[in-house]
Amino acid sequence: MIQEAKLYLYIHPVIQLLGTIFGYFALLWGLKRFLIAHGKMKLVFPWKQHVLYGKIATSLWLVGLAFGVYFTREEWQYCRITGAHYTLGVIAFLFVLGTFLTGYWMELFKKKRVYLSVTHGLLGVLLCILVFLQIVTGVQVLSLFLW
């Protein structure tokens, strides 16, 4: 049963879940771009939506991460108490930054690119894999400490 006094601890997972929804839409549009670029599809790339959803996702993930660290420290005085969830979160943070910065650079200086686009796409795919693993470890944290 959920402890009423601990409801504030659910702010972090809710923000992260919203970020994940936006992030996976951005990933799907990025995959569409990849398929268009390699001649597998003859569609229009929804560039503005991809950029907007990517910005929203990375912003939510960063805000959610800050809340997660803050609430964990407030509740248990030690962030690493969540084990693999903490470790994956640190790694995911680096991928959030890398994905955002490469995407922001491409938005700022629009031109045809190969290597930066591929790097951005790989970072985004790996980030979404890490986010999935974060969901798994996050549910474990919730079940261990709150349920």
Rank of each mutant, 00 (worst) to 15 (best):
F22H: 03
F22Y: 12
F22I: 09
F22P: 00
G23M: 02
G23D: 04
G23Q: 01
G23N: 03
G23A: 10
G23H: 08
G23V: 05
Y24I: 15
Y24V: 15
Y24H: 11
Y24N: 12
Y24W: 14
Y24E: 11
F25L: 14
F25I: 15
F25T: 14
F25K: 10
F25G: 07
F25M: 13
F25E: 11
A26I: 03
A26P: 00
A26R: 01
A26V: 03
L27F: 09
L27D: 00
L27N: 02
L27P: 00
L27S: 01
L27K: 00
L27H: 00
L27C: 06
L28G: 10
L28S: 07
L28A: 12
L28N: 04
L28E: 06
W29V: 09
W29D: 06
W29G: 02
W29K: 04
W29N: 05
G30Y: 02
G30S: 05
G30E: 01
G30C: 01
G30M: 03
G30A: 04
L31N: 04
L31D: 05
L31G: 10
L31T: 07
K32Q: 14
K32C: 08
K32D: 06
K32W: 06
R33W: 13
R33F: 10
R33I: 07
R33S: 15
R33H: 14
F34W: 14
F34N: 13
F34A: 10
F34C: 08
F34V: 11
F34S: 08
L35T: 09
L35N: 13
L35W: 11
I36L: 02
I36M: 01
I36T: 01
I36A: 06
I36N: 01
A37Q: 12
A37C: 06
A37W: 07
A37N: 15
A37V: 04
A37G: 11
A37P: 01
H38C: 09
H38S: 12
H38E: 15
H38I: 10
G39C: 10
G39P: 02
K40H: 11
K40Q: 12
K40G: 04
K40E: 13
K40C: 03
K40F: 11
M41H: 13
M41N: 12
M41G: 03
M41P: 02
M41L: 15
M41S: 12
M41Q: 14
M41K: 15
M41E: 15
K42A: 08
K42C: 02
K42V: 09
K42M: 05
K42F: 07
L43N: 12
L43V: 08
L43H: 09
L43P: 03
L43C: 06
L43R: 14
L43I: 07
V44R: 11
V44P: 01
V44L: 07
V44F: 05
V44N: 10
V44I: 09
F45N: 03
P46L: 03
P46M: 08
P46T: 07
W47Y: 15
W47V: 15
W47I: 15
W47Q: 15
W47C: 06
K48F: 08
K48D: 14
K48Y: 09
K48C: 06
Q49H: 07
Q49A: 12
Q49D: 06
H50Y: 02
H50W: 02
H50M: 04
H50S: 03
H50F: 03
H50N: 03
H50K: 04
V51H: 05
V51E: 05
V51C: 04
L52H: 10
L52Y: 10
L52I: 13
L52S: 10
L52C: 05
L52G: 04
L52N: 10
